[in-house]
Amino acid sequence: MSLFKHFTPLRILLAHHLQTALASLGRLSRNPAGSLMTTAVIGIALAMPAGLHLILSNLQLLSDNWDGSSSISLFLKKEAPESGGRRLAERIGEMAEVSKVKFVTADESLAEFRRFSGFDDVLGLLQENPLPAVVLIQPKEQGGNPVSVEKLVEQLKKEALVDHAQIDLEWVKRFAAITRIAQRGVLILAGLLSMAVLLVIGNTIRLEIQNRHEEIEITKLIGATNAFIRRPFLYSGFWFGLLGGLFALLLVLLSAFLIQEPLLQLTILYNSGFTFSALDSTTLLGFLVGSPILGLLGAAIAVGRHLKRIEPA
């Protein structure tokens, strides 16, 4: 009389799990409108923070490319000799914090200015070159830590030949600060919307439990364990989570596709080597693993709350 023992062979248990999982999926497909709506709600809720995260991380990539704007221009004193300027440039080039250095003589500056400004005639009237020699420095720090760039500038200002140093640091600093705030905001949003997903799935499962009230009662009557009764609902939650995650993935990829072309055009205008990245591994993992876990959790909460109340009478 093995039927009355507390033991199910593993092979049969696994087969039952597979069968239950497929049956739960089948149940979702039998109510396509409702299932699609739930999936869409979950997908949109997940796509929102993921989309913002995507925009932010791309902005960060972009600002990495803008590290050029945190390059330092050292304007040398007018009386500084060209040879001294070259030596200074060489010395700076050997510093650990510096990745690239370029020396531009006063004449070269003038020539370039002529080419770009169109003031050729006017400049011809000048008796001497009004422009100083410049050392252009590209600091090594990629990913932009503005503080160390600032330190480098302070150090370079002390050089005897240097008249003044110029750097567009404030802007980089502010941008970094704003990105950090926005990142925190995305994190909070992701937390809140995950809660929303949990509630949506919990509520959907609660309705399913209500709809299958009689079935649960009858199954209990003929000796089903609580685990047996919980199983299909947990699988429903899992599927809702997974499908919602896939839907979110689709939404994000679609939005990325729509945004990609104009964005690339913009970056070309800015002469930046920026390339758009549509998805990172965190987001993908969140959609394909985190979302099903959220689904399972939501279902577990609903099942825990409502299944105990259903007892055959």
């Binding site: 039927l3 009355f4 033991f7 199910t8 062979p9 092979r11 049969i12 248990l13 087969a15 039952h16 009689e214 079935e215 009662e217 009858i218 199954t219 009557l221 003929i222 000796g223 089903a224 364990t225 047996f228």
Partner: peptide, 23 residues
């Protein structure tokens, strides 16, 4: 107290499925 969403066979099979009997 039958389950009306499934055929006779499945109704009768339910106690065996619950008890973990092979197919």
């Amino acid at each position: 107290r039958l389950l009306h969403d499934r055929p006779v066979f499945d109704n009768v099979a339910l106690p065996l499925v619950v008890a973990g009997v092979g197919r």
